[in-house]
Design a protein around this nucleic acid. Structure first.
Length: 491
RNA sequence: CGGGGUGUAGCGUAGCCCGGUUAUCGCGCCUCGUUUGGGACGAGGAGGUCGCAAGUUCGAAUCUUGCCACCCCGACCA
């Protein structure tokens, strides 16, 4: 149950985000630092995301499996870069038993129950999975392995935000094994495209596809592909990553296969993931000062019907009509709720469903019953129209498609309008300090240069876009033949 | 993990500096009635370990210390 209004985005975007997450009933903080409770309404959206992605993974030949939460500490250290990247943020299990304190003050860790080998709570599962794949793979006939898992992972974060960065989060992680480098790279790119397609077609979020620089690469990867989205406050958000892992994990875990000639080779690997962070992307892409805005394809509730009446006779008449309409809509696969709660006035309901981002609202009163009309109101642009009850269900169904498309168009325009080019550091700072956005610029490919630019602008290279682009003079060193990359301040 | 801020009923808050009956107000909640085309109104009612723990004191929401959580800014990261 949410109380009135949100702070305006223009006043305090960060506060707006926090209030929205809370008032739209998406999530709340738990008593454990950095951990979140995803509430039923928020989880319903995540389930939509999950179900659709799961279907897309299966359509591309993947199967789900489940690997354990706990990973022996020794596994993590087998791949040098990997351990460097994750060691600082791992939760560690050291004991397996509690006992009553002798002074009666409660339970304490039983010092006699110390684990011989400590377990880490997975920050990601490459190590335990590759330790397993070693047993699964003997010959090229065992390849490829195309496995995904839906899981929770823990990374001990210093600074957290609901959905955007929490110590525990939900995600999926795909882990594949291939006999050739080409096939593994293809898989990495294929899954990046699946993500991009999902974000655009279902979340109505346009993304830039690219690869990360060495600095930003996943710990243990040869190449990290990513999709980057632009939020309404002009900051970039990494929405998904797909890694070409080369033979790094195969070598670390000694995973080899016999090829057709009987020669032993190391296996080629990929991994790819998206997380509950997508919820943050969804919120910060479409929502407005009235609350959440959901694309119809991800809305747990697509249509809400609010009756307006003065007495029970009127309500009954309206109900009779609405129940028929509801059946028709449900048959068309449209999710719909008739909110006939007598304790809340229509105005209250309007505001409430706006906060929760229900894409389409229908209001029906005695006037409508008389004229055989209803009032349709769109959440995304607040357009209100009074239309005939004739053929209403299919009009609604079409309108939902229209809303889905309009949200993507709108987000696309925003992305285009907020992508700039800068040829000097001053220009870049000017852009970033005024409204933010993506800034294209040339970069000479050196980490040192990237670091310097970061110090001067607080912007990082979000990606080197996959699209072919021309070369030019490095924004920092002036070096010719530098490649075009995308800078932004980022979440 | 460093610097700053905050924590009082489900939510938002007054009181704290300067310790002293029964902890303020609004929203929400419950009951009854009237209402219902953009967050209704009246009457009555319930709801509190003042973040947690020690300490100072005759007496602590108020003072001291420690801890926990959240928010903002850094460093780090999806």
């Amino acid at each position: 149950m949410s109380s009135k209004g949100l702070i305006k985005r223009s006043e305090d975007f960060s506060k707006w985000y926090n209030e929205l997450v809370s008032k739209a009933d998406l999530a709340e903080h738990s008593d454990v630092r950095g951990c979140m409770i995803i509430k039923p309404y928020g989880y319903a959206i995540w389930e939509k995301i999950k179900d659709q992605l799961d279907q897309m993974f299966k359509e591309t030949g993947h199967q789900n499996a489940y690997f354990p939460l706990f990973i022996p500490k020794s596994y993590l250290s087998k791949e040098a870069n990997h351990v460097d990247g994750f060691a600082k943020e791992c939760a560690v299990v050291t004991h397996y038993r509690l006992k009553n304190a002798e002074d009666g003050s409660g339970v304490v860790v039983d010092p006699d129950a110390k684990l011989d080998e400590e377990l880490i709570v997975r920050p990601t599962s490459e190590t335990i999975i590759w330790n397993t794949y070693k047993k699964w793979i003997q010959s090229y006939r065992d390849l490829p392995i195309l496995v995904n898992q839906w899981a929770n992972v823990v990374r001990w974060e210093m600074r957290t935000r609901l959905f955007l960065r929490t110590s525990e989060f939900l995600w999926q992680e795909g882990h594949t094994a291939h006999s050739t480098k080409i096939e593994a790279v293809e898989e990495t790119e294929k899954m990046l495209n699946v993500y991009a397609q999902f974000l655009e077609q279902f979340m109505a979020i346009p993304v830039i596809k690219g690869v990360k620089t060495e600095n930003e690469r996943f710990a243990g990867a040869e190449e990290t592909y990513c999709i980057e989205a632009l939020m309404q406050d002009g900051k970039a958000l990494q929405a998904g990553t797909s890694h070409f892992l080369g033979q790094n994990f195969a070598k670390a875990f000694d995973v080899t296969f016999a090829d057709k000639n009987g020669i032993q080779n190391h296996v080629w690997a990929t991994s790819w993931g998206v997380s509950t962070r997508l919820m943050g992307a969804l919120i910060m892409t479409h929502s407005d000062d009235k609350g959440l805005v959901l694309p119809p394809k991800l809305a747990p509730l697509q249509v809400v019907i609010v009756p307006i009446y003065k007495n029970s006779t009127q309500l009954e008449e309206i109900s009779n009509y609405v129940n028929e309409l509801k059946q028709e809509l449900l048959k068309m696969g449209v999710s719909v709720k008739f909110d006939n709660d007598d304790n809340k006035k229509p105005g209250w309901k309007f505001a409430e469903y706006e906060m929760k981002g229900v894409p389409l609202r229908i209001a029906i009163g005695p006037r409508d019953m008389e004229n055989k009309t209803v009032e349709l109101s769109r959440r995304d642009n607040f357009n209100k129209t009074t239309i005939s009850q004739n053929g209403l269900a299919s009009k609604i169904s079409n309108l939902l498609i229209q809303i889905q498309n309009d949200l993507l168009d709108h987000a696309n325009s925003f992305l285009n309008e907020n992508t700039y080019f800068a040829s000097t550091i001053e220009e870049m700072n000017k852009i970033l300090n005024s409204k933010g956005g993506f800034v294209e610029a040339f970069w000479n490919g050196e980490s040192k240069t990237e670091q310097k630019i970061k110090e001067l602008t607080k912007a990082t290279i979000r990606c080197i876009p996959l699209e072919e682009s021309n070369t030019g003079k490095c924004i920092f060193t002036g070096q010719a033949n530098s490649k075009k990359v995308l800078f932004a301040r980022a979440y």
